[in-house]
Amino acid sequence: MARDYDGTYQPSAKARKQQEKDQRRMEYRRAIESYCDQRQLLRDLVDYPELQDLTVWQASVAVSPKNAQPSR
């Protein structure tokens, strides 16, 4: 591991490329999971005809844990 004079980690070019590759892989995986979640939600909504006007975007915002308000 390469350490700078102040003790912080400075990754080598190989380690940096691997980190970027891992990051792209995780972004791709999250996109696939999001797509699968949206499809599952749409399948669930088929049982409720009054909710068919609800768009995927609105539904995903409503159930997204990232958008949940923190409890106080």
Rank of each mutant, 00 (worst) to 15 (best):
E33A: 10
P49T: 03
V46P: 01
K14S: 04
Q19Y: 09
L42A: 15
R29F: 01
V61A: 13
A68H: 06
M1T: 11
L42V: 05
Y5N: 09
R39P: 00
E33H: 00
K21R: 14
R24C: 05
K14D: 12
T55D: 07
Q18V: 05
K17V: 13
D22R: 14
L45H: 03
Y9P: 00
Q69V: 15
A13R: 11
K14C: 00
A2G: 00
P11K: 08
R25T: 08
D53M: 11
L54F: 05
A13Q: 12
D53R: 09
Q58L: 09
L54K: 15
D47M: 06
A59K: 06
L51S: 13
Q40E: 06
L51R: 11
Q19R: 10
Y5S: 05
A59E: 06
D4T: 15
Q38S: 12
A2I: 04
R16D: 12
M1Y: 05
R30A: 03
D4G: 12
K14Y: 14
Q38R: 11
E50N: 06
V56D: 01
V46F: 08
C36E: 02
A59I: 04
D47E: 05
D47C: 02
D4N: 08
R72D: 08
P65D: 07
R24N: 09
D37V: 02
R72Y: 05
R39V: 14
Q38V: 04
S12K: 10
W57Y: 13
S64F: 06
P11I: 07
Q38K: 10
E33T: 02
S64N: 15
P49N: 11
L45T: 08
R16E: 15
A62S: 07
Q38L: 11
Q40R: 04
V46Y: 10
R29Y: 03
D44W: 08
P11D: 06
Q18G: 10
Y9T: 04
Q10M: 11
S64L: 00
V46E: 10
P49H: 15
D44Y: 09
S34C: 07
R43T: 04
A15W: 03
D6P: 01
A68Q: 07
S71H: 06
I32Y: 02
Y35W: 08
R39I: 10
Q58I: 01
M1R: 07
N67V: 07
T55N: 06
R24K: 13
Y28L: 13
D53H: 14
Q40H: 10
D44F: 12
L54D: 05
L41N: 01
A31H: 12
W57N: 03
Q23H: 10
R72F: 01
D4P: 00
G7I: 04
D37F: 03
R16M: 11
P65M: 00
K66L: 13
S60I: 01
T8M: 09
A13K: 10
R24H: 06
Q18C: 04
A59D: 10
W57Q: 13
Q19L: 11
R39N: 01
E20F: 06
